[in-house]
Design a protein around this nucleic acid. Structure first.
Lengths: 207, 207, 207, 207
DNA sequence: CATGAATGAGGATTCATTCAT
DNA sequence: CATGAATGAATCCTCATTCAT
């Protein structure tokens, strides 16, 4: 049953992604939100940015909320896919964690619009949307848990630590650093922070 | 000159705090926002909760935005004052950090309305308000920096670490843990998490 | 250049006039203001009178002020167009002046709503709107000046008189008579006053 | 009966005028309205300008409308008293008319605040107030009628003219010239316009 | 007489969504 | 599929007036 629902969603997303206007609108939303701010990114602005009529939006999305969730879903996919590749690459848990941090910083460094949207603008959405965003984020956090557990099992990380707390520390740290960087309007290089972050976090986790 | 300005502000805040209706409205705002959500906490709801007329709000606050900033300012004051007392108490930097974490968790544990407002609702405000909130938060972060620097100077903490990154790790971790706790609707005890958090963070920072 | 700007405005106005809802709302505004008074003619009342939704108003007008200015602009156009036809009709300046007075009284006599709005209600608007209204009125006053100057040049009118003062006398007289008529709730026939007014004014101006 | 009512009002006004705060508030209202505009001259601003508390206003005036009407009443008194003196001075009707025009221009020239208030700001009041103002103005217009009738009876003025129309011409002309002068921010001397105005109006009226 | 803190009614405007074409 | 004109609900703030002191 659960599997059927999962496959159903996969099919839905694939169908959507194949329709050119779907991604066109998602990308337009990222730009419109980044340039105008969350509350000033009206549906009409997103439509204009996407080069379609206002009404067309509603052929691809249930409502405005659905656009925002789709933005997060589609863009989060990049993180998750990269992270899955990292996990499969068969190195140590420490290496995987380091690569994850680098990946996180690299993806957001390379797309300032996306960074502004995920770190600042999308957080202005109401509680309901944020709960849905969090459930999308969960996929990413589960992969992070896998790395942590792997490290604990093979003795790289402290075997007595609480995985949930550790995960919240790693994600909270990465997120806070990224948000501060966006708020400071990218005045310094985010990727250069990675070594210092790795050192601190590995220190915290190490056996 | 700087001192005069400082005293001026102290006087302003004291004058405000002494007017009973000022704090009455601030407290009502916390409850109204926590119960209705940021965007559904209309001025009239706050007024009704405070037991005053709508117009009375505007005798004490410039506009709705000013209420929100005052909420953060007044409530953040509790954290800052506690933290200042902790710093003066003359223990080790590690102890101070531990007490800071406990204080943070304790204050938010004891006022679930406040926790909901600071962790979820107030973040929905627009960029302008968030910038003002951040400048209030800075006071708190400066005190955290003091603890970290003290620990580095007396050899408790790693003397080669980047203070800004370390501060972002500590605050990001505490904030993420608190936010998750609020999102999970306080289903577990936040204060019980403190020992595990301390251990991880001290591990990360230690010399 | 000037001509291009002029044509541009003509095109803008023609485009507007051709949209049926534009004039529908302008006409509704005249009725709503005449019946409810300036300050009681809420946008929602104008919309209801026009048979459109409140929001529709804002597809055709920038704001409420813009409705009021457009009312004056569109209705003043009738005076100006008639007056231009009168001037072209090639009679003596005295005749033209007489016809202008008749035209002024006739137009306002035939539309009591409009008379109330221009003579009483629109004057309650703030200084900013009144300045814009005055600049629209200027067009009318320039045509009046043309008549006066023509009469002075061809010896019909006193060649030593001050044109500005003469124009203010003519317009002030017409305006005062019309306003008094409106304030007396049209209890007598405005057009019947024309011969007496002509006689007095021509007497004042004659060589 | 009518006389009793009249005496009653005289007594009321005399009582009021003797109370120092009454005129203090009236004068403050003129300044507050001239400096802030009609709609921005809140009761609290008038009170502050008069150096009294908001509530004190209501010990001397029924409501805000009453202040405005009193302003007009008290200030109009200057015109009427001057005009009564002119009429008694026993010269020809033409002379009286000339002196009236000069008086009108002189009083408003010498008090720019008052000129702004009577010519621009007070006209923004609602229809109801304007009707009351007009009934106060009537006293002034009756005196003007007396001059015109005197001139018609003694052969100075055209004996076939309509007194009401003639009065509206004289007042409309004076009023329009004064209003234009105020709108042009007193950039020229109002009193210098008097000779040209007299000439035109006497020409219009002459037998 | 005088004060001034408190009251609370009232309205322009925005923008997500629909539906006839 | 695509359009875009039309909809209408929903809210912050001002300010004349009151009344307890």
């Amino acid at each position: 049953m659960v599997i059927h629902v999962f496959i159903f969603f996969l099919v839905v997303i694939c169908l959507k992604r194949n329709k050119p206007k779907y991604m066109q609108i998602v990308d337009a939303a990222v730009i419109a939100i980044a340039e105008n701010g969350y509350h000033q990114a009206q549906v009409s602005k997103i439509a204009k940015q996407a080069g379609v009529a206002d009404g067309t939006i509603y052929l691809y999305f249930k409502n405005k909320e659905d656009i925002l969730i789709s933005v997060f879903q589609e863009k989060m996919g990049i993180f998750v896919e990269n992270l899955q590749a990292i996990i499969k690459s068969g190195e140590t848990a420490s290496d995987k964690l380091c690569k994850m941090i680098e990946n996180h910083f690299r993806v957001l460094s390379s797309d300032r619009h996306l960074a502004t949207v995920t770190q600042l603008e999308l957080r202005q959405s109401n509680k309901e949307i944020r709960l849905k965003i969090n459930s999308i984020l969960k996929e990413y956090l589960i992969l992070l848990d896998q790395i942590l557990i792997e490290g604990m099992l093979n003795g790289e990380f402290n075997q007595t630590m609480d995985v949930r707390i550790a995960r919240q520390m790693v994600f909270g740290t990465i997120d806070e650093i990224t948000t501060t960087w966006v708020m400071n309007e990218n005045r310094y290089d985010l990727l250069e922070q990675a070594p210092k972050v790795k050192q601190l976090l590995l220190n915290a986790l190490k056996a």
